Simulated assay, not measured.
Amino acid sequence: MIVIGAGIVGAACAREYARQGLSVAVIEQGAVGAGATAASMGHLLCVDAEGAPDTHEYQLSQRSMQLWAEWLAESPAHGEAAEHDQCGTLWLAADEEEMQAALRKQAWWREVDQPTELLDADQLQRAEPLLRAGLFGALHVPADARVYPPRVVARWLEESRATLVRGEVVDIQGSTVRLADGRRLWGALIVLCGGLASQRFLPAGCLQPKKGQLAITQRSGSSTVRHQLVELGYLKNAHRTDEDTVSFNLQPRPGGQLLIGSSRQLNRDDTELDLAMLQRMLAHAGSFVPTLPQMSLLRCWSGIRPASRDGQPLIGAHPRLERVWVACGHEGLGITTSLATAELLAHLSLAQTPLLDASPYSPTRFAATP
């Protein structure tokens, strides 16, 4: 079978199909684990459904977190290769309204037996001294973690024993994939995992780009952060479709580095740095960590999140092409949900019983798109 795309979702699919006994070829035009995978923060988190119309996003992320835990438990080498750190997440409440939101989230997590801890202002200051004074508190989710996605991709492709084919896919006809240089490859199954590039083979408008800026500081031997820090307004901003946004999202990296996000620019598919948006994002981060503006930046870059038009990823049979299956459009949750996506797609395409309800993710929902 053929997997198109060597990002983290493609690598997860290659690994899963290999575990099912299939031989796998992975086609990639650029560098392995590049694109949206390399531009991500690598935050592993189970998404709650407090205030959501359904629990589909929670179910997909929760199943994937189980699969991540199983993979990490298979060998200590997996955690080392992934640079895994169960740092936990602190969802920060800047005011009383956000503290009430934290309380509602904690109540929801309690219903599904997910351990959380509510920190008041003093407890938060002791937990993370670099944060500014005056925050109301935070919700601590200790099970969350972070990984370095490009190294995970390399490991999963190694485990899949996939044949890596360098090239650009320009056409898919039945079981045949044609590359730009004229080569033709045949696969009993074809899985489309090319991120935003998958749009050329899908009904118009299925995927939308959301550009993001990131920055990482120099290593520091001084006091640093210990948890992934995210403001509670992040999720609201992540789903905005009417304006560009910035949110505070800070991640500790090895050696005292800090990875800084997050921004979203709608319908931007270029990867050039936007200095105005970067400055806006860094200024917002500095309003939470006052010492941040004094730290030296090692690198700044941008990436493109491949988002679906309705906010749900595309996982399932292609709406028009037989033998072609789709796994893309995860936006900011591709790292977390990669393993559950691969498992669900393998179950569907190999006529096995899925563990999750696949209907919300079916690409056929876009079949009528002109």
Rank of each mutant, 00 (worst) to 15 (best):
A11F: 09
V32S: 02
A34I: 03
G42M: 09
A49C: 11
Q59W: 00
Q62A: 15
R63L: 13
Q66L: 12
L67P: 07
W71D: 08
L72E: 07
A77Y: 03
A77G: 09
G79Q: 10
G79H: 09
E83Y: 10
T89M: 14
L90V: 09
L92D: 07
E97Y: 06
L103T: 13
R104Q: 14
R104A: 15
Q106D: 15
Q114A: 13
L118S: 12
L118A: 10
D120R: 08
D120L: 07
A121N: 04
D122S: 13
D122T: 12
R126S: 12
R132W: 01
A133G: 11
G134E: 05
A138M: 08
A138P: 08
A138Q: 06
A143I: 14
V147F: 08
P150I: 02
G167L: 07
E168N: 08
E168L: 12
V170C: 12
V170W: 01
I172G: 00
T176I: 10
R184Q: 15
A188F: 02
L189F: 05
L196F: 13
C206E: 01
Q213V: 01
Q218K: 10
T224F: 02
V225D: 02
V230T: 15
Y234T: 14
A238Y: 01
E243P: 00
S247G: 12
L258D: 02
I260C: 13
S263N: 08
R264D: 03
D270H: 12
T271M: 07
L275F: 11
A276Q: 11
A283G: 13
A285K: 06
F288M: 14
P293G: 05
Q294E: 13
W301K: 06
S308C: 10
P313I: 07
P319C: 03
P319M: 03
L321H: 13
E322T: 11
G332Q: 13
L333P: 00
T337Q: 15
L339E: 04
T341M: 05
E343C: 06
H347G: 04
S349N: 02
L350Y: 01
T353F: 01
L356V: 07
A358L: 07
A368L: 07
